[in-house]
Design a protein around this nucleic acid. Structure first.
Lengths: 128, 128
DNA sequence: ACGCTTACTTTACTTTATGTAAGTAATGAT
DNA sequence: ATCATTACTTACATAAAGTAAAGTAAGCGT
């Protein structure tokens, strides 16, 4: 059994799931793997997300120490988000997800052009 | 770009996410890694899930070809769920999640006794 | 005749997640 | 004076997911 602030987990996979088990968090992590980013950059990367939801998700990830937030006292404001060391350590999971997804598409879908998103992250972050 | 029945994905990680990005699916996969299971066994393994939700999630996983369903024409009914080959191929992802979760708990939580769940799956399924 | 079993399905509801649209704060540029 | 900029916050609305509890179907044991 594992405990993280009062909360109980039956196994460590459940702990991991708790970190990114929603519609947005893994996307945020994926884009932050590429490089540290400002709020606006993230909201452009993940253009379907609303500002409100992005704010909430970033706060949740920060609370779990997956990302860090650095606010500069400037006008207009500047806030930079970055993965923490343990956040960066999620990379092998993403790599496996990347590989599995490719295989799955081979069997059950079709492949079109490579997107900028994938090209960039794959090139800079995945050590395959 | 990837396409799976009309749906568009910017990268293959998004494809993978789509498979288990909810509260229950990965738990189902986790328990099926151990061995093929009947409906009732799964609902005992994941005792927090309601029958209705389990039914829906199993159906969704079947539609995505992650698990297979075999119904025997017996009374009382018997239905056995098993991972398909591509479902079994999710194992490396789970392994990475297992490792990451352990590390995360080391830094941010406390570890208690090993649960039956974890012991069993780790022993039988993870090739670490 | 009746209850037990399994794998569901159905109903009626509550909770959680997400969206929409507007507002705010501070300041430099026009 | 007003606008643009950025990173939010607020109030309200809707959609999605989950819950509890009961129902169903068919046949077996008592």
């Amino acid at each position: 059994m594992y405990y993280i602030n009062e909360k109980e987990y039956k196994c460590s996979v459940a702990v991991t799931l708790d970190v990114f088990n929603d519609r947005w968090k893994l996307a945020i992590i994926w884009y932050l793997l590429e490089k540290d980013k400002r709020f606006k950059e993230l909201s452009e990367d993940i253009h379907e997300i609303t500002q409100k939801t992005l704010t909430i998700k970033l706060k949740e990830l920060e609370e779990k120490n997956i990302i860090s937030r650095q606010a500069f006292l400037e006008i207009p404001p500047r806030v930079v988000y970055a993965l923490t060391p343990i956040g960066k350590a999620l990379r092998p999971i993403l790599e496996e997800m990347y590989l599995w997804g490719k295989n799955y598409v081979k069997e059950h879908g079709t492949i079109g052009e490579m997107t900028a998103c994938e090209a960039s992250v794959v090139k800079k972050c995945l050590k395959l």
